[in-house]
Design a protein around this nucleic acid. Structure first.
Length: 552
DNA sequence: ACAGACCGCGCC
DNA sequence: AAAGGGCGCGGTCTGT
């Protein structure tokens, strides 16, 4: 059963049931009652807008169809340029009306009013009619797709992801500020007064200046560092850490230390802690479908770039544990399943903990795991630097179908075409500027070189897109399956973090066995749903730990 | 003073 | 022959 729900001011709302429309004074209460009774598939303008308030009111939804996220997916399928959409825009499109102006995305600094925010997702006219019309239209467009079953799965997974994202923000990632602070003090010295540099960084800056003979150097300014090396008779193309590592000069060591610690201080220091961690929880805002490939992004807090050193601050509550589930070598396995390359698929079959790159090395690279990995990454990313060319040639010879699959995607991109993930997420078309640059014939040498370069760049993007986006299909489907399973078998468990191919569950210790089992089940279910009967195995290893740093 | 480009680095 | 995917964020520097 589908039930459309539209929030109104003051916590009220309107609901469209099969039997007719109802206006309700307390939308959360009405939805809770329906959820408990018939657990419908909720048709929502945007889960991101409505669900946080429901969660605060203690209401959990099992399933939904997110009209805004679905509209984004379907517009991409139709070749629309990448641009965030919402229900109002979808409805305007459907009715042939001009679209409403863009609104800024919701921000965590806004007051958490219950259902009172309208960020432009409610169309003019009766929003129930509009939502129902857009829903019907979306179903029709899904049915018209060459693979409607896959697209339906993608839409369901994306919508479930929106629910999961709101729940993750609601629960928060357990974060021990005291552990984090102790680490900062150990590495940087005591917290400096506002505007001052930590003692350890000031020391290193002095050592850097001394190593350059006392000349003024700002280690935070790359140009200043490059100039200092030039004065010392050393030409460096940039001040990147991997460049400096190859340079023999006494300033290199303190510079590298400075970079590492300055990064920690600036990005995840005391200020970050003050603004992002409250009552023992880190609550990032996830942006579902924020990347064109279907990966998520976050708003603020840099949640998907948490440095590994800080994982020690992520600790389960007393009596609880963390179940850390990490997919092993997801992308090459995805390529194997996507392409149907029988030989690569065979290497990806078999038992869970197997190291794919080691198997690949034994099979084709004289046991050199590093070579095997470089070859595979070049195939998927389109790079051949660092001697990867010959290794890629070996890979192509041994696994022609797999390498052919990504090269086909690259050719499509080079000629301006679009490519799709396994479940049908579609790459954006290149810009008008790109088409102008690559489309014109008879150019002078410079323009022709730029044109070829632009084509190659877009080819690398589409080459990677088919793998990255299909991996995102799998990960999202896994998350959705895990969420549904835990609601049944371990309802006290909370999914608290999701990062591309990794998921964290915080649960009472006695549930960790059940949760670990459901992690494995969810991965198997997603593999079957997304890739059908492929022999490729997608291991999702569950580690039960008290501290995130202890996983793996 | 502010906006935007570029740099460099964190994660996958 | 050479060719390195996706993000968020905070820094400096430059232009207005």
């Amino acid at each position: 059963m589908q039930v459309v729900a539209i929030p109104e001011a003051g916590g009220a709302g309107r609901i469209r049931l099969p039997g007719g429309d109802r206006g309700v004074p307390d939308l959360a209460a009405a939805m809770a009652e329906l959820e408990a009774g018939q657990a419908p598939r909720w048709v929502l303008p945007s889960a991101e807008e409505i669900y946080p308030a429901l969660l605060r009111a203690g209401v959990r939804l099992a399933r939904c169809h997110d009209l805004a996220l679905t509209e984004n997916i379907l517009l991409a399928c139709a070749g629309a340029p990448d641009r965030p959409r919402n229900l109002a825009a979808a409805h305007a499109r459907l009715r042939g009306l001009p679209e409403p102006p863009d609104r800024p995305p919701p921000s965590r600094t806004e007051a958490p009013a219950l259902f009172e925010l309208d960020r432009g997702t409610t169309p003019a006219g009766d929003p129930l009619d509009a939502a129902a019309a857009v829903y019907d239209d979306q179903q029709r467009r899904i049915d018209a797709d060459p693979h409607p079953d896959r697209l339906r799965l993608l839409v369901a997974a994306e919508s479930a992801g929106a629910l999961a994202a709101a729940e993750m923000t609601h629960h928060g990632l357990p974060w021990r500020a005291d552990v984090h602070e102790a680490l900062l003090t150990e590495l940087l010295g005591p917290r400096p007064p506002a505007g001052a540099r930590p003692a350890r960084l000031a020391d290193l800056a002095e050592r850097i200046t001394a190593a350059f003979g006392g000349a003024e150097v700002n280690p935070d300014a790359p140009a200043s560092v490059v100039r200092a090396f030039r004065r010392a008779g050393i030409d460096v193309p940039s001040s990147r850490a991997w460049v400096l590592r190859e340079v023999a000069h006494p300033a290199v060591e303190p510079l590298l230390q400075y970079k590492e610690l300055a990064r920690l201080w600036v990005a995840h220091g005391w200020t970050w802690l003050d603004s992002w961690v409250h009552e023992g929880r880190f609550r990032p805002e996830y942006v579902v479908g924020g990347v064109v490939s279907g990966r998520w992004a976050t708003r603020g807090g840099a949640a998907l770039q948490l440095p590994k050193t800080l994982r020690t601050a992520v600790r389960a509550d007393p009596g609880w544990t963390l179940v850390v589930a990490d997919a092993a070598q997801l992308e090459p396995r995805v390529l194997a399943a996507l392409s149907g390359d029988p030989r690569l698929a065979e290497l990806c079959a078999g038992s869970g903990a197997a190291d794919l790159y080691a198997s690949l090395a034994a099979d084709s690279f004289d046991g050199d795991r590093g070579h095997a990995k470089v070859a595979m990454l070049s195939a998927m990313y389109g790079g051949t630097s660092g001697g990867a060319g010959p290794l890629l040639a070996v890979l192509r010879k041994r696994f022609p179908q797999a390498v052919g699959y990504v090269e086909q995607a690259a050719r499509a991109g080079e000629s301006g075409g679009m490519v799709r993930s396994r479940l049908g997420r579609t790459s954006p078309p290149p810009s008008a500027a790109w088409r102008a640059l690559t489309g014109s014939a008879e150019q002078d040498e410079t323009t022709e070189r730029r044109s070829r370069e632009a084509a190659r760049n877009w080819g690398r993007f589409t080459r990677n897109f088919v793998v990255q986006a299909s991996a995102a299909d799998w990960a999202l489907t896994t998350l959705a399956a895990l969420r549904r399973r835990l609601a049944g078998s371990a309802p006290a468990a909370q999914v608290v973090f999701f990062q591309h191919d990794e998921v964290l569950v915080h649960c009472p210790a006695e549930l960790s066995g059940v949760v670990a089992e459901e992690v494995t089940n969810a991965a198997a279910e997603a593999s079957r749903l997304v890739f059908g009967s492929t022999p490729v195995h997608f291991p999702l290893q569950a580690n039960v730990v008290d501290c995130y740093a202890d996983a793996k």
